[in-house]
Amino acid sequence: MSHPLLATKDLTVRFGGHVAVDAISCVFPAGELTAIVGPNGAGKTTYFNLISGQITPTAGSVQVAGEEISRLPVARRAERGIGRAFQLTNLFPNLTVFENVRLVIQSKAKKGFDLFSMADDHVQIREDADQVLQNVNLLAQRDTIVSALPHGDQRKLEVAMLIALDPLIYMFDEPTAGMSADEAPVVLELIEQLKNDQTKCVLLVEHKMDVIRTLADRIIVLHNGALVADGDPSTVMSSSIVQEAYMGKALGHVE
C-alpha cells in the first residue's frame, strides 16, 4: 500500500498547561495544495514548526511517505524533503542575494563539506542559483547585500530559497505578507506552478481569502490548536463551524 506524502497522527504539543497543537491527524497527498487557516493563535505556525522540526512534539507522529520523522533534527528533515519558508523573513542578512540562494543549492548538492575547492568554481551550482533568481525576478538584485533589500524583495527571496531547495513538501507561511499589490502575483504564480508537479505537495498558511480561493485544492481550519474543518474550499468556507470559529473572529478584529 502506498503512503501519503505527508501525514501527521495525533500530533500534539503542550507548553506547560497550554495545548498549542491538539491531536491533529491529517493526511497531505502528493499533488495537492492545502491552505491552513484559522485565527491568530490557532496553532498554524506551531503546527508548521512541528512538521519542519523546530519544535519536538509532546505526542503523536509526523510521517513522510510512511517514514516517521518527528524525532529527527531539522537538517535531517530537510534532507527527507521538507522545505519551509518562514513567516518572519529569515535570511542570511549580511550575504548577497545570490549567496543566499547558492547556499541552498549547495546544500542540496551535498557540497557542504568540500573544504579545498573554491565555492565560485562550482559552475553548475552557480548557474542553478542564477536560474532560480531569474524565475523569481531577482536577478537584477543578485549582488545586493540582503539587509539592504526592500522588504518585498526579501519576501521574494524567502520564497526563492524554498524553491531552490526543491523539496517534496513545500511549506509557505504567509508568503505574500508585506508585499505590494504588484509583487504578490509573481510569488503566487510561482506557487501555482508548483501545483503542476504531481510528486509534491504544498502547505500554505494564508489569511487572504482571495489567495486561498484561487490556489487551494483543499482547506483545513485550525482553532485553539485543534483541527475543526477539512474539505474543499467552497464547502469549508460555507460551513457553520468555520463561520463561527474563524470568520466571526476575523470580522471582530482589525488587521
Binding site: 533534527p73 537538517a75 519551509r84 529569515n90 542578512p93 547556499l103 568540500d114 573554491m118 565555492a119 530559497m161
Partner: peptide
Amino acid sequence: NSPFGRVLQAIRENEFRAEAVG
C-alpha cells in the same frame, strides 16, 4: 572560500535557517 567556508558564514548569519536548508 570553499563551499564549507560559505556554510560557516551562513551559520554565523542565521543558524536557524542554515539548519532548515539542510
